[in-house]
C-alpha cells in the first residue's frame, strides 16, 4: 500500500481529485469575501455536471460546452443573488431550494434530453482533454505528476492565481472585500454593495460550474445522478479553513484531494469495507473543521488573554 501512496501516480490522483473541490472552494471564497455564504455550490456543480454533458454533446466541442456551462453557472449565481439581495430571502434557505432543485431537476432534464435514467450513457459528450507540456514533463517526479493532467486541472491552478490577483490587486477586488467586512463603510464611500455582491455571486457560480463540468467531462466521462457527492459542501469547509483566501483554499483543497485519493487507494487494497472507505472525505471534513476551529478558538483566547 505504501508503494502505491508514494508513487507519482498517487500525487496525480490527488490533483485530479482536488480539482473540483478547488474550483468550488474558490467559488466559496469569493462569495464569503463579499459577505455571503454560497451554500448553493453543491446544486450549481450538479447542474453544471449535467449541462456540461448536454452542451458538449450538442456543440461537439468541450470548449464551447464549458463556456455555455459557465454561463449557466453564473446565471444560477445571479438567481441566488436575486433571492438573497432583492427579495431578502435567507441565504441558506435560497441555497437549499437551489440544491433540491438540482437533485431532482438534473435527473428530470437528463430523462427529457436523452431518455437516460440517472446515467448519461447514451449522450455522446465531449470531455476536456488531458494535456502534456513537453518541458514540464521532463522534470523528474513532479513532471510525472503534472504531465497528462486534465486541462481543467491546469485551469483550476491558474484560477487560484487569477483570483488572488483579482481580490487583492484590483479595485473591484478591494470593493468585494470591503463590502464583505463592513458594508456600511463600503457604502459610505459610494460603493454599491448590492452590485458588488451580485458580481461576487456570479463569479462564484461560474467557478463552481467549472468544477461541475470537470466532474462529468474530465474526472469521469458521463453524468451520473448526485455525482457532485457533497463537494460543494466540502468546499465551504475548505474555504473557511483556508481563511477564505484563494491560496489558503488551494492548500486545503489539496488536503481533501489527498483524502479522496487515499480512499481510492484503500479501495484497491481492501483493508476495509468499501462503504467505510467512501466516508473518508466526509470524515476528513468533520475532523478538519474540528481541528481548525479548535486552534482558532485557542488562538483567540491567547490573544484576548494577553
Amino acid at each position: 500500500m505504501w508503494k502505491a501512496i508514494l508513487s507519482p501516480d498517487f500525487f496525480g490522483t490527488i490533483l485530479r481529485s482536488a480539482t473540483p473541490i478547488l474550483f468550488a472552494t474558490l467559488a466559496a471564497s469569493i462569495a464569503a469575501k463579499s459577505g455571503i455564504t454560497n451554500m448553493a455550490l453543491e446544486g450549481i456543480m450538479l447542474f453544471s455536471a449535467l449541462f456540461g454533458v448536454i452542451f458538449s454533446s450538442f456543440t461537439h466541442s468541450a470548449g464551447l460546452g464549458l463556456l455555455l456551462t459557465v454561463i449557466v453557472g453564473g446565471l444560477i449565481g445571479a438567481i441566488l443573488a436575486f433571492f438573497v439581495l432583492n427579495l431578502k430571502t435567507d441565504e441558506i434557505l435560497a441555497a437549499i431550494a437551489i440544491n433540491l432543485t438540482a437533485t431532482g431537476g438534473t435527473v428530470l432534464l437528463l430523462l427529457a434530453y436523452s431518455g437516460d435514467r440517472g446515467v448519461s450513457s447514451s449522450v455522446r459528450s465531449v470531455s476536456a482533454p488531458n494535456i502534456t507540456i513537453p518541458l514540464i514533463e521532463k522534470i523528474p517526479f513532479i513532471g510525472q505528476i503534472l504531465s497528462g493532467q486534465n486541462v481543467l486541472t491546469w485551469l483550476s491552478l491558474l484560477a487560484v492565481l487569477v483570483m488572488h490577483l483579482f481580490l487583492y490587486k484590483t479595485p473591484l477586488g478591494l470593493s468585494i472585500r470591503s463590502v464583505g467586512e463592513n458594508k456600511d463603510a463600503a457604502e459610505s464611500v459610494g460603493i454599491n454593495s448590492r452590485k458588488v455582491q451580485y458580481i461576487a455571486l456570479i463569479i462564484s457560480g461560474a467557478l463552481a460550474a467549472m468544477g461541475g463540468f470537470y466532474l462529468s467531462g474530465g474526472y469521469m466521462n458521463m453524468f451520473t445522478k448526485d455525482m457532485s457527492g457533497g463537494r460543494g459542501f466540502i468546499a465551504l469547509a475548505a474555504s473557511s479553513m483556508g481563511g477564505n483566501t484563494p491560496v489558503g483554499g488551494f492548500f486545503v483543497s489539496l488536503l481533501f484531494g489527498l483524502a479522496q485519493a487515499l480512499a481510492n487507494v484503500m479501495q484497491l487494497t481492501a483493508v476495509m469495507p468499501y462503504e467505510i472507505i467512501l466516508m473518508v472525505p466526509y470524515l476528513t471534513t468533520l475532523i478538519g473543521l474540528g481541528v481548525y476551529y479548535y486552534s482558532q478558538k485557542k488562538k483567540k483566547e491567547r490573544l484576548s488573554g494577553k
Binding site: 478591494l174 470591503s178 467586512e181 463592513n182 463603510a185 463600503a186 459610505s188 464611500v189 459610494g190 460603493i191
Partner: peptide, 22 residues
C-alpha cells in the same frame, strides 16, 4: 466622521483612504 467608524479593519490605512476612489 461618524461616531462609529466606517472603516474596514483588515485593510491598511491607505486602502481605507482610497476605498471607492482607488
Amino acid at each position: 466622521v461618524h461616531q462609529h467608524f466606517m472603516l474596514v479593519p483588515s485593510l491598511s490605512v491607505a486602502e481605507n483612504i482610497i476605498l471607492g476612489v482607488a
